[in-house]
């Protein structure tokens, strides 16, 4: 039984009487306690996906079709009251910039207690105890003093810890972390990632990590979804995706990392850039930047199929599998083994 299942989700943005598709036919599932990552360049729709799960997409965006089910309960049709029971309590979210998430004019303690008391009937004293316990859990030194301090008195890493503590207050089943370490230094980033990982393991919380950094993803996630122009182009176990990327886009992303080339040599760049929503190419959206693109790629939408390693949406791989099936229908599962 899947904890969360998103199927055939389409999210559109209404701009000047034109409907632009930000997410196209996105489907994935999340099991209890599983950690998945969503990677892609800016503009790929990663954050839109994160926001849509808790139905936080504001105007001009709207969910056009598809379903999001949490424990078999449909989230897309819920009213605000029902959603408030889900947000925070079942699914919590961590955003990129901790300074923007915390209210600068309220003390840390005030904000934490407010979260607990708005969801449960509990005295201030009990709520404070819970808050301090959670601050302790995220390894904040002397939580009693920090409780009365204001966000500006804390450093960036400390603020992100407070946010993680605030997310833990209501014991959610799923944490969605939208680029939680982008605003932080490398040393602090490593600490925060370790903390997130430890918390998810200890409490059996499922994590959806949204990131553009494959290095970060490889540390935390068990499964990775790669997004391009609003679609999932590849999905599979993180290790497989990093060691044996199938989709040309995933390959490009990995090859562009500086550690993939010898020092001092030219980096392998992906030509061009992500198309804006209004100029979505026909056929496979990646074809203008793809080194293997053929005439067929310009017309035909690739299907999402299992390649033996991961699931990919690419015509080239689809054709390869078809050919293999014709030659040897028995071994079609190991189709790409011979390729390597």
């Amino acid at each position: 039984m899947n904890l969360l299942s998103v199927s055939h989700l389409n999210v559109n943005f209404q701009v000047k009487k034109q409907s632009l598709a930000a997410l196209i036919d996105v489907s994935f599932t999340l099991n209890r306690g599983e950690r998945i990552a969503i990677v892609g360049e800016s503009g790929a729709g990663k954050s839109v996906l994160g926001f849509s799960i808790v139905n936080l997409i504001g105007k001009p965006g709207y969910i056009a079709s598809g379903s999001i089910k949490l424990d078999n309960k449909e989230l897309t049709t819920m009213n605000l009251r029902q959603l408030q029971e889900v947000r925070g309590k079942r699914i919590a979210m961590i955003f990129q910039d901790p300074m923007m998430t915390l209210n600068p004019v309220l003390s840390i303690g005030h904000q934490l207690v407010e979260i607990i008391r708005s969801h449960t009937k509990i005295t201030y004293k009990d709520a404070k105890n819970i808050a301090i316990e959670k601050l302790h859990k995220v390894q904040i030194a002397s939580p009693e003093t920090r409780f009365n301090q204001y966000p500006h008195e804390l450093s960036g890493g400390m603020r992100q810890r407070v946010i993680i503590a605030s997310v833990l207050l209501l014991n959610p089943d799923i944490i969605i972390a939208d680029e939680p370490t982008t605003a932080l230094d490398v040393t602090i980033q490593a600490e925060i990632l370790q903390l997130l990982l430890a918390i998810c393991r200890d409490h059996g919380v499922a994590l959806i990590l949204i990131s553009h950094d494959l290095g970060v993803v490889s540390k935390v996630a068990e499964r990775t979804l790669v997004m391009y122009a609003g679609q999932i182009v590849e999905e599979g176990p993180t290790l497989e995706i990093i060691n044996d990327p199938q989709h040309p886009y995933t390959q490009g992303l990995l090859n562009a990392l500086p550690q993939m080339t010898l020092p001092g040599h030219r980096l392998n760049q992906i030509q061009g850039s992500m198309p804006p929503l209004s100029e979505r190419p026909s056929g496979c959206a990646f074809h203008p930047r793809c080194p293997y693109a053929t005439e067929a790629c310009k017309q035909q939408q690739p299907k999402f199929i299992y390649s033996g390693v991961s699931s990919v949406a690419c015509l080239m791989i689809e054709n390869m599998i078809d050919e293999f099936d014709r030659d040897d229908p028995v071994q079609s599962d190991n189709v790409l083994e011979g390729e390597r």
């Binding site: 490593a190 990632l193 290095g215």
Partner: peptide, 20 residues
Amino acid sequence: SAIPRLDTTSADPIRLIGEV
């Protein structure tokens, strides 16, 4: 040691206590 490397097996980063 804090660089997020691609390999999932690399050693844990050396933890510095406190912040700058």
